[in-house]
Amino acid sequence: MSPSRSPHWPEVELHVVTGKGGTGKSTVAAALALALASTGKSVLLCEVEGRQGIAQMFDVPPLPYEERRIATGLPGPRGGAGTVYALHIDAESALLEYLAMYYRLGRAGRALDRFGVIDFATTIAPGVRDVLLTGKVFEAARHGRKKGTSSRAGAAYDAIVLDAPPTGRITQFLNVNSELAGLAKVGPIKGQADRVMTLFRSSRTAVHLVTVLEEMPVQETADGIADLRAARLPVGGVVVNLVRPRDLDAEDLRRAREDTLDRERIGADLAAAGVRLDPAPGQPEDGLLDGLLSEARDHAERRALEDRQREVVAGLDVPTYELPRLPGGLDLGGLYELAAALREQGMA
């Protein structure tokens, strides 16, 4: 599988990012927002899972229910850098805002919150909760947004990146009409769900899936693509995250798996490089070399597993992108490095 090298999403305004837990979904969403900003765009990065992950990644204070500027993209070949804004969306605040906008329940809405009615409504009816969360994303995506909300009134974004729920719930989360079928057949909430679905099923939206080269995440990615297509939701690309460096050729990997590497040559090469193989007290003379060869075998076996999963990803018939495993861990500099990789591969 070779990563895509041409832009696939010039018309997309809403990039929904999902993935199995542990694959780095939120990291990829943040990197994509930076990549889009590095093409000169004004970008809104949204999260809906209540973990304040954006604030942690960008090393800023916890985000309120309000759009805040958090970063600037790297200058790109097509001009100056754009800006990344962030929004932490919670269902309770979204419902209060909804009541104020459509029913003019200002103080009355806050009173309901004190009595626990808001929490009851968003817990007892998960479909309503998802309509509120996705409705706020829809509000940010449209032009001429309402004043008096948490939005930057009148501001328009070139792109929105949504750090969405995991793959196992993404179709249910986005397919809000289906979730509301037994709750609301008419009325403002049903109308809002219809408008949201118009956006989600249009060419303005793409749902990207994040995976790592392991059997369970890749299978969940394949299942997620099938579910999205069955719900007529637009599948975007697959981002393969945490890719290990491919610095050994196939023959060396085979020898490492079969324990047929030339021990004497490796020992001589290490000695020539200044690596001492003197054993620790009580250890056999060649214990360190044995440990290194064991590490090589484990690495080769892992690479073989990844190569098999890479073939599965290639068979999904969607654009694919790869992000490296960062040896120093993830910080803001690492996010910019990943953003540059996505831009270079044509995802932004």
Rank of each mutant, 00 (worst) to 15 (best):
P3T: 06
S4P: 00
H8W: 12
H8K: 02
V12R: 14
T18K: 12
T18W: 01
S26D: 00
L32F: 11
A37V: 08
S38G: 10
V43K: 13
V43M: 14
L45C: 07
V48W: 03
G53E: 13
I54C: 05
V60C: 04
P61K: 08
L63T: 11
L63D: 04
E66N: 03
E66M: 11
E67S: 00
R68Y: 05
R69L: 06
A71S: 00
A71V: 06
A71D: 07
G76P: 01
P77Y: 01
P77S: 11
P77C: 03
R78V: 12
R78S: 15
T83F: 01
V84G: 04
V84W: 02
L87I: 01
H88T: 06
H88Y: 05
H88S: 00
E92C: 11
Y102D: 07
L105M: 02
G109W: 10
L112H: 08
I118R: 03
I118P: 01
F120I: 04
T123C: 05
A125Y: 10
V128F: 15
L132V: 03
L133I: 08
A140C: 13
A141L: 08
K146P: 10
K146D: 13
S151R: 10
A156K: 12
Y157F: 13
D158H: 13
L162A: 13
P165Y: 08
G168N: 05
I170H: 03
I170T: 09
T171E: 07
L174T: 00
V176N: 08
K185V: 12
P188Y: 15
P188H: 09
P188A: 15
K190S: 14
K190R: 15
Q192K: 10
R195S: 13
L199M: 05
R201A: 02
R201H: 07
T205Q: 09
H208K: 06
L209I: 05
T211M: 01
V212L: 06
L213V: 08
L213T: 00
E214T: 02
V218P: 01
D223C: 00
G224S: 02
I225H: 10
L228R: 03
L228E: 07
L228F: 05
A230M: 07
A230Y: 09
A231K: 09
L233M: 14
L233E: 10
P234T: 06
P234K: 11
G237V: 13
G237Q: 10
V240D: 00
N241T: 02
R246L: 11
E251D: 14
L253F: 07
L253A: 00
R255E: 14
A256N: 00
E258P: 09
R263G: 09
I266C: 11
I266V: 07
G267M: 01
P279W: 01
G282Y: 02
D286Y: 14
L293V: 00
A296R: 05
A296L: 07
D298W: 15
A304D: 11
L305Y: 02
D307H: 12
D307Y: 09
Q309G: 01
E311F: 11
A314P: 12
L316K: 03
L316Y: 13
P319G: 04
Y321Q: 04
E322K: 03
P324W: 06
P324H: 04
L326Q: 14
L338N: 06
A341N: 06
A341F: 11
R343M: 09
R343Y: 15
Q345A: 10
Q345F: 12
A348L: 00
